[in-house]
Design a protein around this nucleic acid. Structure first.
Lengths: 344, 344
DNA sequence: CTGAAAGCGCTTACAG
DNA sequence: CTGAAAGCGCTTACAG
């Protein structure tokens, strides 16, 4: 039902030349005379000519769109990530199609099918909680469409991915808590088959071990959304021997923990300390401000997009799967203020 | 450089029939024999056939993509909005292409051009701060591509738009502040040529007038990002006669105000009360929790998308520009606790 | 310097 | 029940 926009053929008719000539004039082909170019350019402007990207891409058998599949556009982390992706893509002259899996494996597969039909040039993926294997992405790669995974990735080595060094970061975060005098630390992780959980749990355990403390399994909990985080926090702070610190692996879990702490009327950090993995702005404006392991979504997004475009531009070469591991930085704020003076 | 995926012609060759037959078999055309259909379907499955959306759309002269232009994917408001849009679009079988203007008029125009080339089926727009007129969208509408504006819209009547009743909401918010005993209220608005500012300022003024208070121009300020909001708040709280309440029109301005209040070591709401327009989750988890005029980004997004699809599906009819005005709800929390007992 | 022709992958009216 | 042909809007090798 769309009105037809002006085409090459339409302009050719007006000028009494072939559409071939118009096409070439438009792209400043050396063969075309200057007068012809001026004429065509003027007409194109006058008629608001915009080349039909569909036709161009079909003809060239390539598209200028990359796909992004993420679990959900929540306000915690993905906005800055999408921004990073979008900026890199725009600078390369590409569009971005964003699809949400809503944490559903089924929906993730549907998205793959849709994107396959759109003949995207590449795909960025952060998998859903339900995703336990990668076989639904095989078709994409075997169609010659490169994929880069980021943030929420499965434990698997032969893929291209961008992530932070979660183990190291969790180790440092836990050490910070211990050195600040906290002794009974609960880790609020997410789905245990995701690398973001596995890595961070590993770092958490390692730090406890180094400090000669035992990593009690009851102190490692799994929350996949705000409500679960609130529920688990509530359970934990009502234990006989409640924790004196909670370490959350996402802003989402942080928000849940905060709700529970607030309802229990506990004071941060005196009753309970709080440390989180965070993109930054959210943790900073809380009161008290929340200490965090800062990992920039924007950076992950732009690095993932850059890696993807590298693959896109080098499809002729055999590239070896590459894992780009970004550093995360500990930002100490009020929520982990030292418990007993300076224990050093 | 992409590997070629299997095509109709490819499958036709395998089966020794024409691609016409394959095409029809795939879409369950009544003319085709059952055996042929089964054969084709099986082969398509085996070969992972996915129709080339580019070709389909080119042929049908329509696309299954809608465009979205927003100022920025900030973490304050747009995530839930995009979610609302994406869900409606998905249910209609459409993809969503999101482009950011980064609050730049120039970039907004570039986005329009790109989208025009993609032959999108429709466009959703929230304009940038710099945008003062709509002429760059004329080409879109005259190409027969419907537009629906949402949230950040210019003061203009003959357009399709979805927005909240900002005037009424600001009126009620201001009344709430006054009734809670606050007397010197500062409104932290955004760009004065945006309807979100104009409407809310109007409601703010009206409430003051009804209460017999005068709307001091010095108490209406304009901040377009977090830093400006922090700066202006800092200025204001250092006045000789500082406000006892600040009313911010966005989560972004709220975040800036909070920063300044924190640095000045003021207590909310005893030293200064805070009321904001907000999507909800952010204001709720703050400490103290922030009272707000709750307007659901998700709702605005899904309503805007629904209106757009109504236009897309009814391009043959002459539709009259429609402004869908959504209600916003006052949610009273700790940040506006009554100042002097109950003044009623 | 310009144009006719082929073709990207699909759909659909027409013919048999 | 099946197929040949035209065409969506473009690009590009080939010819002149």
């Amino acid at each position: 039902m769309q009105k037809k926009q002006i085409t090459l053929k339409g302009m050719a008719k007006v000028l009494g030349v072939s559409h071939t000539t118009v096409s070439r004039a438009l792209k400043d082909h050396p063969d075309i005379s200057e007068e012809m170019k001026t004429q065509v350019l003027e007409l194109a402007k006058k008629l608001n000519y915009h080349p039909n990207t569909l036709a161009v891409n079909l003809r060239k058998n390539q598209s200028s769109t990359i796909g992004v599949i993420i679990p959900e556009i929540s306000f915690y982390f993905f906005p800055s990530l999408l921004k990073g992706i979008e900026e890199v893509a725009h600078s390369m002259g590409y569009n971005v199609v964003i699809m949400q899996s809503n944490e559903s494996f089924k929906r993730e597969k549907e998205n793959v099918t849709l994107l396959l039909g759109s003949r995207i040039a590449g795909l960025l993926v952060s998998v859903s909680h339900e995703t336990k294997e990668y076989s639904h992405f095989d078709e994409i790669e075997s169609a010659g469409i490169p994929i880069v995974f980021f943030d929420k990735v499965l434990e698997k080595n032969n893929i291209f991915k961008v992530d932070i060094d979660g183990s190291k970061a969790a180790y440092e975060g836990t050490m910070h808590l211990i050195e600040s005098g906290f002794k009974n630390i609960v880790l609020l992780a997410a789905n245990p088959n995701m690398s973001i959980s596995v890595d961070r749990i590993q770092g958490f355990r390692k730090a406890l071990k180094v400090q000669g403390m035992n990593a009690n399994n009851e102190n490692i909990l799994y929350a996949n959304n705000l409500d679960e985080a609130e529920f688990l926090t509530q359970q934990v702070i009502n234990r006989e021997n409640p924790p004196d610190a909670i370490f959350t692996i996402s802003d989402q879990n942080l928000a849940g923990a905060l709700q529970a702490i607030k309802k229990a009327d506990l004071t941060i950090p005196d009753d309970i300390a709080l440390l989180t993995f965070s993109d930054g702005p959210l943790a900073a404006i809380m009161n008290p401000s929340i200490s965090c392991i800062k990992h920039s979504g924007y950076q992950i997004g732009s690095k993932a997009a850059s890696l993807l475009f590298y693959r896109i531009k080098n499809m002729d070469k055999q590239l070896i799967p590459f894992a780009q591991i970004l550093a995360a930085e500990l930002v100490v704020r009020e929520s982990t203020r030292k418990k007993y003076g300076n224990p050093k």
